[in-house]
């Protein structure tokens, strides 16, 4: 019984620490991408992540893609004909959508990794703050 309780606490604490790291990262990303907006409207293809975004200050989760300022993609979402700003979440999603996505956030070997794609940033006319410039990459 105690094992399961400890396992549960361990999982929760891991999940909580990852979640809080993620929250910090997403808050920074959204603030950097939309510095002028007081409310950023976010659409996500993963409902449980929607809950995470809704907890961020100045973020509203929307149900329709067309209402969103940015689409947070976690799965195999069709983004070819989408005219909205896209952010990839997860390594495979990032690699698959690097032509359209403005950047990606994923966990690799237990470490959080963040990459902004230079040409897509330029296409959107976004200039990132200095603290995030080190994450900008020329991704082919």
């Amino acid at each position: 019984m105690k094992f399961f309780i400890l396992l549960f606490i361990f999982t929760i604490s891991l999940f909580a620490s990852e979640q809080s790291a993620e929250k910090r990262v997403y808050a920074s990303i959204l603030k950097a991408l939309f510095p002028e907006k007081t409310i950023v409207k976010v659409w996500s293809d993963k409902s449980e992540k929607g809950a995470l975004f809704s907890k961020l200050d100045g973020v509203r989760v929307v149900a329709q893609k067309k209402d969103a300022d940015i689409l947070m993609i976690f799965g195999p979402e069709d983004i070819e004909n989408c005219d909205k700003m896209i952010f990839a979440n997860g390594y495979l999603v990032f690699r698959r959508s690097k032509g359209k996505a403005i950047g990606g956030f994923y966990w690799q070997k237990g470490r959080a990794n963040l990459t902004f794609i230079k040409k897509n940033l330029e296409k959107e006319g976004i200039r990132l703050p200095k603290s995030l410039e080190k994450y900008v990459e020329d991704v082919e």
Partner: peptide, 9 residues
């Protein structure tokens, strides 16, 4: 990781 790919450590 792929060759030349950035890794945040």
């Amino acid at each position: 990781g792929l060759f030349d790919m950035k890794f945040d450590i």
